[in-house]
Design a protein around this nucleic acid. Structure first.
Lengths: 248, 248
DNA sequence: CGTTAATTTGAGACCATTCAATTTCGGTGG
DNA sequence: CCACCGAAATTGAATGGTCTCAAATTAACG
């Protein structure tokens, strides 16, 4: 089995598969994408791909692994604002912005394909469908971020964590990383806490509740959903906000 | 003085001014925008402009007033995910999505210009700069939403509210609605609570603290910043995430 | 000037935090 | 193969920020 789901031969295979299923990409567009000059880079666990405030010259597509977009507050605490999975652009918004307004950090080991912004912008100029695909990606990312706002603002810890697990499970399923109802979930409890605005201690207690209630199994970075119906109910989860980031 | 800042003659004047200052719009693009067929609509306080889950055929530009984008959770509570000010597209993401994933409700009375999605998409097809401008708007909206995630996740009530007031003050200033250091802020304490994931009762207590500390005056929907330096410090506020939504 | 919405106040309960200390886990070297 | 190590997970007890539920007061509006 493939570790980390580096599916397909081409580094951008997952990205192109997603865009193609959305039916917004011709074969010729695919060829153009496939011949983009890109730098493949292996990123160590905890290493940064983008630094907040820095000028950005490249955009990165995640090939394998998990990465977190995050910001720091003045108390030194961290808030994760997005989790990105393989096949996603980790900083699409930087295409049109000069400076990164958040940092991107690798969770565990990961691989990215770095593409110069200018190369993508040139491609878009002649192939509007590719620009449209990236734009739609930024729109779906924004939809997910808004659901996180709802999560953080109006759901308690139990619902928040259940909701996050539902979301990641569906998004992993969409890229074929949930064989037999299980998926790898390399997030530590501290990282879950930084996603959901909680402390690691409380995340630990809530996860124990979810396990005790028979909703999930989570051990050694392996998540199993034991009762999807109840988990979605606890998390007040309705996956429509994911748009095309669902279903294989 | 103009009520609600309906500046300029054309309904889209504020929008075009913003895009022009960003220097991404030619005079010919402006003319094309100005001759768009649009329906001007007056919206009563509390009325809905977009309903979550519904098919969307038009996009709306806010001409005057304030509107809130929001979602409901299963407890019946509301979370506001964005506040839109005059000159902004209130549902740009619906251009590329079939169904609205949040509702848009008017705060106080407002006016919008409704434009058929097809008209905008046609315009974009021949004038990529306009598509680029809308795309950049969605990107900046997403940046603001991410900052809200940080606010909700990692700041206490006092910092959250201070931060929100700083943001709205700068955004109002950018559209010339802060003569002499004051601005209209038609949000009720309950709506501030729904923005920041708090209860109206607690918002009330925090606002009293901010007033007692001499940071703000807020009465009758009129906000005055008394100590910008301290307010930004309390709110851990750095306006760079607003990108071009700042400065007049 | 009456009616309704919005703001304000108080007291008690609760969810999540803080601060430690302990245990388990995954990886490494002897 | 086992001892060791740092990181992650787990547990406990006390604190605290925010909520809940009323009730009272003030402001907005026709």
């Amino acid at each position: 089995m493939l570790p980390n789901g580096a599916a397909g031969d081409h580094p951008l295979a997952l990205l192109m598969r997603r865009w193609t299923m959305r039916s917004s990409l011709s074969a010729s567009d695919r060829d153009a994408l496939a011949s983009l000059a890109l730098t493949r880079r292996s990123v160590q666990r905890g290493a940064y791909i983008v630094h907040e405030g820095e000028a950005v010259t490249h955009c990165s597509v995640l090939i394998s692994g998990f990465v977190a977009r995050q910001k720091l507050v003045n108390t030194g605490n961290r808030q994760i604002v997005a989790i990105h999975l393989p096949g996603e652009l980790v900083d699409a918004q930087n295409l049109l912005l000069d400076r990164a307004d958040d940092s991107v950090q690798s969770i565990g080991q990961s691989e990215v394909a770095m593409i110069p912004k200018s190369a993508i912008l040139d491609l878009i100029a002649t192939r509007p469908e590719i620009g449209r695909a990236i734009w739609l990606d930024t729109i779906i990312d924004a939809s997910i971020t808004r659901e996180w706002v709802v999560n953080l603002g109006r759901r308690d810890a139990r619902a928040r964590i259940a909701h996050l697990l539902c979301e990641l499970y569906l998004r992993l399923q969409a890229i074929g990383q949930c064989p037999s109802g299980q998926c790898m979930l390399p997030l530590s409890q501290e990282q879950i806490a930084d996603c959901m605005g909680l402390t690691p201690v409380h995340v630990n207690r809530v996860l124990q509740m979810l396990r005790a209630d028979g909703l999930i199994a989570l051990r050694a970075h392996r998540l199993t959903i034991l009762d999807w119906a109840q988990l979605t109910q606890v998390g007040d989860f309705d996956g429509r906000y994911l748009h095309d980031r669902i279903r294989a």
